[in-house]
């Protein structure tokens, strides 16, 4: 099961990197979304997919799933959610000001903005 999940996370990373290298800003942001999905899936996998019960204390249950990776993922999800919301608004502003979403045409140097 871990092997399958590792392959799936790998595919997510591949797709993320391909999208991040594209020219369109919105595709790059979609790429960061896939990247964080891959990272979160990866924590879950590397924590081990053993345990038969959810980590809630109940009488008679002894085999719980590891609760620590789940807490880490929950933290990482809200952080990446906040950052994604910020970057989407930033992309919207940048589109309004620069009149383009093509990253290649967002050029400039110290003399020319």
């Amino acid at each position: 099961m871990e092997l399958l999940m590792a392959i799936v996370a790998g595919i997510l990373f591949t797709a993320a990197i391909y999208l991040i290298l594209s020219r369109s800003l919105i595709k790059v942001i979609l790429g960061t979304g896939l990247l964080s999905h891959g990272a979160h899936l990866f924590i879950l996998t590397m924590g081990g997919l053993g345990g038969s019960a959810p980590p809630v204390l109940l009488d008679g249950v002894t085999e719980y799933a590891d609760p620590l990776p789940q807490a880490l993922i929950l933290t990482a999800i809200v952080i990446s959610f906040g950052v994604t919301a910020f970057i989407l608004v930033l992309a919207y502003r940048t589109y309004a000001v620069h009149k383009t979403d093509d990253l290649n045409s967002m050029k400039g140097n110290d003399e020319h903005d």
Binding site: T32, L35, S36, G38, A39, H40, F42, I43, T45, M46, G47, L68, P69, L72, A76
Partner: peptide, 11 residues
């Protein structure tokens, strides 16, 4: 994202 992945490896 790399930081999260590295922590996962380490864990």
């Amino acid at each position: 994202a790399f930081f999260v992945i590295t922590v996962a490896y380490l864990y």
